[in-house]
């Protein structure tokens, strides 16, 4: 049993390392951002001028986040496997520390993605956010689950022969319990409708389950 403190230190070292790598090799990060921008722009262009209802807008936002996330997270482990560094990392690093380090990195890049795309989305679709804190809370909760499930799924697809698409296929059903309530809550945040806070609890509970399950299941890989 390793001390909690030394594991935290290990997690921080991995986060710092990935941050440096992302800073120097911007390709994955840039691809994720541009993917989000392209999808938002193409949807906005093709629906230009039409008045879209809030339900549709909320769905668009989450679909964009989901697919941009798959572009950004699918290589979490595979990029290192391709570079040959994954075996070194696994040998010297504690397994749980690697998992949580990667989860943190995923969460940070998803946060950066949302900070980038949300204002653009709101401007291009002329969205009127009525309840900004509900929207932010929903996004935060949603991204936590997405990062947790995405990290474990990325670990699963590392040894797969086909990469394109597989990550999204695997991730989507697993994150549905996040998306359905998140889309509903996002829709509510765009209108003056009453808040169904039990949905936020559902997302939070599922986030917790996903983090615990990832932690337990990762040891078997």
């Amino acid at each position: 049993m390793k001390l909690f403190g030394s594991r935290c230190d290990c997690v921080l070292a991995i986060v710092r390392k990935d941050f440096l790598l992302n800073l120097r090799r911007r390709a994955t990060f840039a691809a994720m951002m541009m993917f989000a921008l392209t999808t938002v722009a193409s949807l906005s262009l093709s629906t230009g001028g039409a008045i879209l209802d809030e339900k549709f807008l909320a769905a668009i936002l989450w679909v964009v986040i989901f697919f941009a996330a798959t572009a950004g997270l699918s290589g979490t482990f595979d990029d290192e496997a391709q570079a040959g560094t994954l075996s070194t990392l696994k040998l010297y690093g504690d397994a749980q520390a690697i998992l949580f380090g990667k989860m943190f990195v995923s969460m940070l890049s998803l946060l950066a993605l949302t900070i980038f795309i949300l204002p653009i989305f709101c401007v291009l679709f002329d969205v009127n956010v009525e309840k900004i804190f509900l929207l932010l809370a929903t996004i935060l909760f949603g991204l936590i689950g997405l990062a947790a499930a995405g990290t474990l799924t990325a670990a699963l697809t590392t040894s797969a022969k086909i990469k394109g698409g597989l990550f999204a296929i695997l991730l989507f059903p697993v994150t549905l319990p996040i998306f359905l309530p998140a889309i509903r809550l996002t829709e509510i945040s765009f209108t003056s409708a009453q808040v169904d806070s039990s949905l936020l609890v559902v997302i939070g509970a599922f986030d917790t389950i996903l983090i615990l399950a990832s932690s337990i299941l990762y040891d078997y890989l």
Partner: peptide, 16 residues
């Protein structure tokens, strides 16, 4: 691992 991960979603979907 994927089989077990996906089974977790069921109780939530039934509720949601």
């Amino acid at each position: 691992v994927y089989s077990l991960l996906s089974v977790l979603t069921v109780p939530f979907l039934v509720f949601v």
